[in-house]
């Protein structure tokens, strides 16, 4: 992998964002709207429930912000790829001396920048509006973030592989894939709420351990290393599978001439 070429591809995305007000607004717009919505719903629930669930605001807003980290990381990869498809630039990129690994690394790195900007904005807004301190989680925030970013990368790679195989007809998956996991991943409620059969699915999703772990840290101040280990192990598995699938689909795209068709669609 040539890091210089990765850097240039990252710079390319930065140029695109610098010149597109809509894309820049998008980095803040949806997360901010979600935060406002969840924040006020939470405040309302707390008032109605008269504090029946301690730290409800913290749990839900924390979950919403961390979910956004995962979602934005996945979107960073998939939308960057789709962007090249939409503007019919994909062939220019792959006719240039650029490896698939360099391209994916660039989309991921730029996704990280987007996640960073969104996260800092949300953290500031949540503190200002709801007195929620994201950094109350302290050190635990780092392993949580690492696991969410790796899962975002894995999902982004898997989604890109599927779009590469099925073309633009599958582009709705770019937004749908993370939400397929959300009901089972214990984002806003504990795993114990789910029926036993769904708990099995929940335990196979890496971010379940992050959200369970987050609630544990906020409630008791204890960081569960076993949760961290499970999340990391599953992430390694899914990322490995995702990369294998992407390489396989890229091979298939070369076999069936899909890159050209994707560009000319």
């Amino acid at each position: 992998m040539n890091l210089r070429r990765v850097g240039i591809l990252v710079l390319r995305y930065a140029f695109v964002y610098r010149r597109s007000v809509i894309r820049l607004v998008e980095v803040w717009f949806w997360p901010t709207m979600e935060l406002l919505l969840w924040g006020y719903v939470t405040l309302f629930l707390q008032r109605v429930g008269e504090g029946a669930v301690p730290r409800l605001v913290t749990f839900l807003i924390g979950a919403m912000i961390l979910w956004d980290v995962l979602y934005r990381a996945q979107q960073g990869i998939t939308l960057s790829f789709l962007e090249d498809v939409w503007v019919r630039n994909l062939l220019n990129i792959f006719c240039a001396p650029v490896r698939l690994s360099e391209y994916i690394a660039a989309t991921f790195l730029f996704g990280l920048v987007r996640v960073g900007v969104t996260l800092i904005s949300l953290a500031a807004l949540a503190w200002g509006l709801y007195h929620f301190d994201l950094f109350e989680m302290g050190f635990a925030l780092i392993p949580f973030m690492v696991n969410l970013l790796i899962l975002g990368l894995a999902l982004g790679v898997i989604t890109t592989a599927i779009i590469l195989r099925f073309g633009q007809a599958a582009e709705a998956l770019a937004w749908a894939v993370p939400f397929l996991l959300q009901p089972f991943a214990a984002v806003f409620y504990p795993v114990s709420v789910l029926p036993p059969s769904l708990q099995v699915i929940a335990r196979a999703i890496p971010c379940t351990y992050v959200f369970e772990g987050m609630r544990e840290v906020l409630r008791t101040g204890t960081f569960r290393w076993d949760h961290f280990g499970w999340a990391l192990g599953l992430n390694a598995l899914y990322l490995g599978l995702g990369l294998w699938l992407l390489v396989r689909m890229f091979d298939l795209a070369r076999e069936r001439g899909l890159l050209g068709r994707l560009t000319m669609q």
Binding site: R12, F15, V16, R19, S20, E83, V87, R88, N89, L91, N92, C95, T263, M264
Partner: peptide
Amino acid sequence: NFSSVGVNLPPNLT
């Protein structure tokens, strides 16, 4: 290098 009538460059870059 390669040039094709069916391929474009990102439209919002100069």
